[in-house]
Design a protein around this nucleic acid. Structure first.
Lengths: 99, 99
DNA sequence: TGGCACTTGTCCTTTTTTGGGCAAATTTGA
DNA sequence: TCAAATTTGCCCAAAAAAGGACAAGTGCCA
């Protein structure tokens, strides 16, 4: 989960929630809630967070997207089949662009 | 896309939109829009549609879920990485249940 | 050329989600 | 034990999505 990831990054860098809050210009209670998944992490924050924690934006972006996909698939008995289909369709989609 | 799938199933069975609309108890224009992805296909309709078209509910469910995942991943450059992570996390999650 | 089937456009209400603020409580560390 | 950090609870407004209805238009064909 991205909230937990953010928390790990933040603490490992000795940054305090208030600092993150200041950078994102929100209440620091909001950061706490983001870290505990109580509030969603807006995608628009990703770049600032990546900058602040000095990780690549790509890395956070991937985690963020994974979360969204997991939201759809968690507790879904057919998740495996779904992933297979999605993989195929994405490949097809990429191919179509070539035509 | 599930809309298109529904359309294919429907026409292949010689069923008319009005019939589907009656079964779902909605306006038939709504069916047209569902088939063209203009309106979402509510998950709660899946079972009735499966019954009507005589396909397994599982089949439609998988397509429906795939659509939702594709919505997240389409046009995402890191989709492949995301799928890998999701796959792993789902496996972990399933394992945790065993403990 | 009338009648189906279907599509399209406009409008509407209700529900859900997002994106917060603020204060109080709680935890943590020096 | 004091202060800073964090969490929690409650509240709120705006925005977006869901879930339609209805009317008018289009396409087809017998």
């Amino acid at each position: 989960m991205i909230g937990n990831e953010i928390k790990k990054l933040r603490t490992s860098r000795g940054i305090v929630q208030r600092m993150v809050a200041a950078r994102l210009d929100v209440d620091s209670a909001y950061i706490s809630k983001m870290e505990s998944e109580e509030k969603p992490v807006s995608r628009s924050y990703i770049s600032k967070l990546a900058e602040l924690f000095e990780v690549s934006q790509k890395e956070l972006e991937i985690i963020w997207l994974s979360d969204r996909v997991l939201d759809v698939l968690v507790n879904e008995p057919y998740a495996r089949e779904v992933l297979a289909i999605v993989k195929k369709k994405l490949a097809e989609g990429a191919a179509e662009v070539q035509i």
